[in-house]
Amino acid sequence: MPDSQTLGNRTRGMGEIVDIAGKTTEIAPFGNTLAELGRERPEIVGLTADMGRYSDILPFRDAHPDRFFNVGMAEQNLVLIAAGLSKVGKIAYCTTYSVFVTRRAYDFIAIACAHSMANVKIFAGMPGLLNGYGATHQATEDLNMMRGIADLTIIDPCDATELKQVVRAVADIPGTVYVRNLRGKVPVELPADYKFELGKAKVLREGNGEIGMISTGYMSARGLDAARIVQSEGHDVGLLHVGTIKPFDKKGVIEFARRHKRLIIAENHKTTGGLASLVIEALYEAGVYMPVVKIGLADSFFECGSQEYLEKKYEVDLPRFVRAIREGV
């Protein structure tokens, strides 16, 4: 399996995605793309709640200082100001950690933004175990919370390639969008011709019809790694990446499931209320019953530690994927 070059025992509190052996990475794809887009779209404004550095929005600030606002540690106000800006014609990209914006500003996202179809694009940093500061900093139920809000779009990009497309795409998606942001050195995993399409799950790998993996976020990249590892053992795993959590591509998921004998569902989130719940609901409604293994987090709070340590401890690491494929559990 690929090893991290820098983690070891070190707690990466800010959850930066770091160099992984054999992986190409790209620095700050969110902020650099937004800075570019800001040149083309003068109506774009950028905001942060004291998380400019840790959300990668600083390239936008440096390129467009008059259109950048740091509201301080005030997530409710971040969302309200973004809503107000959008209601006078701006497209407001706002950033903080996913855990803070979801847990602290839920009502404000629901009513001031989603209900009004406000042009607010929330780039929510370091979801799930990408943050090593423990339960206070880890958004492990954000998909569950956000999917409960009507008229909200939710995107969980896989890598730098997809994230850059999403930064551009959301400017033209009507209403409020919640994106699980990837910061720092973000791996480039998807092929160069990958095309993000809102609400459309993408087959990243065609298998032999035995095992199908359905995944979201950077877990899709891990699924690709796992599939490559077991290929020589006769396992030819199909992989469907669900980049858009809401609107959820029921049709694509059901079609993919029907083409396989058993499923593995993987997410950087609790196995309750996120992708696994969505997939199982969709399959059951469609009368598709099949064995499913869920890779994700338990309904718990999680401790501090490096990403590698946490992923191993809570069983979302690469060996866990390989075991799910080999052993079916």
Binding site: Q76, L80, A82, A83, G84, K87, V88, F108, I111
Partner: peptide, 26 residues
């Protein structure tokens, strides 16, 4: 102009609108 009623939502949106209007020179 806004959905009222969930209290504490007005002022922040007013601030955002004021900032946006100023950006436009309105």
């Amino acid at each position: 102009e806004i959905v009222g009623g969930s209290l504490g939502h007005g002022l922040g949106q007013a601030v955002g609108m004021a900032m946006g209007l100023r950006l436009d020179g309105s």
